[in-house]
Amino acid sequence: MKMFVCIKYVPDTSEAEVKVNPDGVSVDSSRFSFDINDADNYAVEESVLIKEANEGDITVLSIGPKQSDVMIRMAMAKGCDRAVRIEDERIAGYDPLMVAKVLGGAVKGQEFDLVLTGCMASDDWHMTTGVALAEELGVNHVSMVKKVEILDGKKVKAYRELEGGLMEVVEVELPVVLTIQTGINEPRYAPIRGIREAQKKELKVANLDDLGIDAAEVNADASLVVLEQLYIPQVESSAEFIEGEPDVKAEKLASILVKGGLV
């Protein structure tokens, strides 16, 4: 089973205060700590589980700065075999289609059975890259995957999590791109021994020229997305507390909903 797993280096915005830079289109990331995107972490684990069950070989792909090497090596410490980090300022990184083209360019020309990505990134929430990558590679895709079964090495049975707790099960021929949902497995911790071994594994750094990708196809000019403005929504407090006995409260609530055209 030859696999690629795509991971993204994202800021942890859960605790830190988010501030928009004066340019209005970027965020001050100086106080953020960065790490692997949550869903991608599950994708790494899934790829390692598949490798352990079926044998195989995993290449990590990531577009990011030198600082993300630690994140990439962490994936290798857990069992991935090698990595390519793509670093090139010309890439329009906020446009998932451009990102998919770059990742696709790194995969093209090589044999593969599976490409795993997280189903979404916690910084821009596009939920598009994996699907676009499948298009780029001209292969099938299954998105929001919550369970994977490899069938006789030629097909994969993937369980998709839909709204309302529904599970859709699809069988699809390899090669395929799977976008992995969080919770599909329990990501392992990298053991010290794995961490040490990871230092000896290959981590290739490549730019667009190395990958044979025409920058004019993936840069800001090529992108159809224009980031116009980022802003922190104003906090508004307009909660209305309904007082009274339960039946009175219910009546008041119903009348508000009807008046507002909500029911």
């Binding site: 790490d35 090497d69 630690v70 090596r73 962490m74 990298a190 053991p191 010290i192 961490i195 230092q199």
Partner: peptide, 10 residues
């Protein structure tokens, strides 16, 4: 170094 940082994270 990277190994320290990774062990720190684990």
């Amino acid at each position: 170094d990277d190994v320290h940082l990774m062990i720190k994270k684990t």
